[in-house]
Design a protein around this nucleic acid. Structure first.
Lengths: 152, 152
DNA sequence: CACTCTCTGTGGATGCCATCGACCTGAGCC
DNA sequence: GGCTCAGGTCGATGGCATCCACAGAGAGTG
């Protein structure tokens, strides 16, 4: 991970569909060299993949909620994780410090679907309680913060 | 947004670097047709961009925190938003229902940097109080949920 | 029904890009 | 010095992006 790798990471966080030729121009290397570097970033786990950033409301996921989960004392955290993992509505799952062991970001189409999700969560073994707050609007999300040196 | 558009969106959410030729094979259209459709999805705002998914700890952002913000009564929400927007550490910003008007997801390198961020937030005009919880680990994040029909 | 307009598709042509292999170069080390 | 290796360049080639001309389906209209 030298400065050029950081530049490549920055460029790809900004636009994952840049061609190797374009990346090469930006960082001042040849296309094969960039190809090699990006391949290594991928196989070493620095770059985990490439995702289209899609407006959720345009694919019928207009309701965003954050759900904190308090575990039962003695609950098996790994089992709970597996129960959470199979729920597709849960986009993100953080294991937190504090009373609420998990913080989930869920995305559904309607409030009714959110209700169903919460019911399911409360029925999940190991869940003592849930606390849901609704996001009225998403001001921004997953904004990449620049890490590399400035790239001309 | 017909079924083919949804398939394209799904495919690109899974791998944003798929070639138009490959997308075309997957959905059963010609490459120019797919090119046209994706272009329209982009210009209509359904697809907002393409991002490399980078392991944050590998670029020196190993600390994730969620920060709730309570506004002063009478605070100007738009002004606050602008103050938040210039802080690069804030990756996501939701306007919430509830006591805490904003919920921020912040990513920093060290606990010391988190402390500085919190201090800055508490000094920001309009902020009555903040409540920070640290994510001990990220189980998953921004997992795309399939929306289109199954794609062979 | 027939005409036409529009939308969305296909197929072909062309130039750029991804990718492979051969080779070069400088650093570290015996 | 001479070996070795990591990581670069260059050149070739086949595939892809992209442009263009044109075809066919459907909606609206006389």
């Amino acid at each position: 991970m030298d400065a050029i790798d950081l530049s490549l990471v920055d460029l790809l966080r900004g636009n994952a569909r840049l061609s190797y030729a374009e990346l090469a121009r930006q960082v001042g290397l040849s296309a094969p060299a960039v190809h090699e570097r990006v391949g290594k970033l991928e196989s070493s786990g620095v770059v985990r993949g490439y995702r289209a950033d899609v407006a959720p409301e345009s694919i019928g996921l207009g309701v965003t909620a954050l759900i904190g989960i308090v575990e039962d004392s003695g609950a098996d955290t790994d089992d709970m994780l597996e129960s959470l993992r199979v729920l597709p509505e849960i986009e993100s799952c953080y294991f937190m410090a504090g009373v609420e062991s998990f913080l989930l970001k869920a995305r559904v189409g309607t409030i009714a679907e959110l209700e169903q999700l919460i019911v399911r969560l409360n029925r999940t073994p190991g869940v003592a309680s849930t606390r849901t707050t609704i996001a009225l609007s998403t001001k921004w999300e997953n904004r990449p913060q620049p890490v590399g040196p400035a790239v001309g």
